[in-house]
Nucleic acid binder design. Structure first.
Lengths: 189, 189
DNA sequence: GGGGTCGTACACCGATCGGTTTCCTCGCGG
DNA sequence: CCGCGAGGAAACCGATCGGTGTACGACCCC
């Protein structure tokens, strides 16, 4: 039986990639990655075409869980305002962990300056999904300018992620009030 | 006369470092840097102890000009609100350049995940100076919570920098309204 | 029990990394 | 004119980079 069997090489690889690329940055070497995953380089290159593809796949795999972590449940009956604030409350919570280094997708985009990089494309899509969520809620809540509000909220989210990653600065008491001020200004119910 | 003479090796090195580390990232190699600067590696290592020191020195050198670019003149007689908004107006202007990649100090902090890195220390100091400016103006303008407002404004500034660097997203029409909303919420005159 | 397949271990490739050293050519003061 | 130091070109160092080639062991299905 495999009650305690290890996951597939592919999964081990992506788990290690998620961990290492997030903690050590994109300059993490293939050797270190494979050693951490307990997978030979040979196998890695049969599963993926290149290191870049591993990065992209790792981000891709992380996306659903990340969304589930931040977004309110789809059937959360609260009004748009509360649903939006939920995201920032969760963000503040996450930032309390001492190993929190900001949004991994934003970090990937910043580190890989090339926006055409496969991993950067994935990250952009995830960030766009967040903006889309904000925008939908802004429309539902009757914001004066839903598109603007959505971009503003994403701006705050990314600012918080960047500062958390850069300075390890605490986000407590900062993010939610800021988002609230923007919601107020936009007249979101 | 030296009307068209080249600057000192040190200056050429720091100019090239500023350029390359900003555009290509911290993974830029020493060879590329020295070639771009027209300085031999040997000379470089007589002027600096390590690549890390070059990075730090380049950021250090860039700091005053960066402040001058963003901050209002010290004797700018406008009220605090206008002086704060000046920063964000300048930021929007900068972001119109197609090669703008966000705040170089923030980028350095994000790329070098190690906050103890010499260049990261310099960057943190510069960012703190910006927050201090915001805080001073917030106090002068009678903000309800000057420290909070200062952190919020820095948050927006960094968010804008991160997104500009990551997605090449336009900041036009986004940053100033966001800052304005926060100023309003804080009751800054 | 023989393929076939999957994955590992490991040597290996050329390139590049940060950093050091050697050599040689300048310019400048005596 | 000579001596000397500064600085550039480039070889060199061991390590590591992303990526391959090869050989061998574990397993599975006939």
């Amino acid at each position: 039986m495999d009650t305690q069997a290890k996951p597939s090489p592919r999964d081990r690889l992506l788990d290690a990639a998620t961990e290492l690329f997030y903690r050590e940055g994109v300059s993490t070497g293939i050797d270190a990655l494979c050693k951490a995953a307990g997978v030979s380089k040979r196998s890695m290159y049969q599963l993926f075409d290149s290191k870049d593809e591993v990065m992209a796949a790792a981000l891709e795999r992380r996306a659903p869980g990340y969304a589930a972590l931040l977004l309110p449940a789809a059937d959360d009956p609260r009004p748009p305002r509360a649903r939006v604030l939920h995201v920032f409350e969760r963000l503040e919570e996450l930032s309390r962990a001492e190993d929190y280094r900001g949004c991994p997708f934003l970090a990937a985009q910043v580190e890989l300056k090339d926006g055409a990089h496969p991993a950067s494309v994935v990250a952009a899509r995830v960030k766009q999904a967040l903006t889309d969520f904000f925008r939908t809620e802004a429309e539902r809540g009757g914001a004066a300018d839903p598109a603007l509000l959505a971009r503003q909220l994403t701006l705050v989210f990314d600012g918080a992620s960047a500062r958390a990653g850069a300075a390890g600065e605490s986000l407590a008491g900062l993010v939610v009030p800021t988002a609230t001020a923007l919601l107020d200004a936009a007249g979101l119910r």
